[in-house]
Computed example of a mutant assay.
Amino acid sequence: MPGMAWLAIAIVAEVIATTALKASDGFRHTAPSVITAIGYGIAFWCMSQAMRTVPVGIVYALWSGVGIVLITAIAWVLYRQVLDTPGLIGIGLILAGVIVIQVFSKTTA
């Protein structure tokens, strides 16, 4: 499987794990806590597979950037955690960085 496919799986697993982490309420609830642990395990394993062919800096930039944007959107919908204008601008800049890497970088193959 190509590195970027592994990275996409890693991002999805990390987003699921982070969403479950919030629901675990400080690891007080068993099911979300287990989902968190398994999700992060899958995320890091898949990210390590992506790093076999994609540079570590690109993998980490995309993993963290896309994860931040997705988690922010999920927190807005599920937990009504709305960002103020500076927060939205910051998220927009992160998204712009991810787009620049994906569209213009030749190192993401």
Rank of each mutant, 00 (worst) to 15 (best):
M1C: 09
G3W: 03
G3C: 10
W6P: 02
W6Y: 13
L7H: 05
A8V: 08
A8I: 11
I9F: 12
I9V: 15
A10N: 10
V12L: 12
E14R: 11
V15R: 04
V15A: 06
V15C: 04
I16W: 09
A20Y: 10
A20M: 09
L21K: 12
L21I: 01
A23L: 15
A23C: 13
A23E: 08
D25S: 15
D25E: 10
D25Q: 14
G26W: 10
G26P: 06
F27C: 06
R28C: 06
H29P: 09
T30N: 14
A31P: 14
A31M: 10
P32N: 07
S33P: 03
S33F: 07
V34I: 12
I35E: 03
A37E: 13
I38H: 10
I38A: 14
G39Q: 04
G39E: 08
G41T: 07
G41L: 12
G41C: 07
I42K: 11
I42W: 12
W45Q: 11
W45I: 14
C46L: 07
C46G: 14
M47V: 15
M47Q: 13
Q49R: 14
Q49N: 14
Q49T: 11
A50C: 08
M51S: 15
R52T: 13
R52A: 15
V54D: 04
V54E: 07
V54S: 13
V56P: 09
V56L: 12
I58V: 14
I58G: 00
V59L: 06
V59Y: 02
Y60S: 09
L62K: 00
L62P: 01
S64L: 02
S64T: 13
G65D: 00
G65R: 00
V66Q: 01
G67A: 03
I68F: 06
V69T: 04
L70F: 10
L70Y: 06
A73G: 10
I74F: 05
A75C: 11
A75G: 05
V77G: 09
Y79E: 08
Y79S: 13
R80E: 03
R80V: 03
R80A: 05
Q81K: 08
Q81M: 12
V82G: 08
V82I: 09
V82W: 09
L83D: 08
L83P: 07
D84Y: 01
D84Q: 10
P86C: 04
P86H: 11
L88T: 12
I89D: 07
I89F: 10
G90Q: 08
I91L: 06
L93C: 06
L93R: 03
I94A: 02
V98Q: 03
I99F: 10
Q102P: 00
F104C: 02
F104K: 08
S105T: 05
S105A: 07
S105R: 00
S105I: 03
T108A: 08
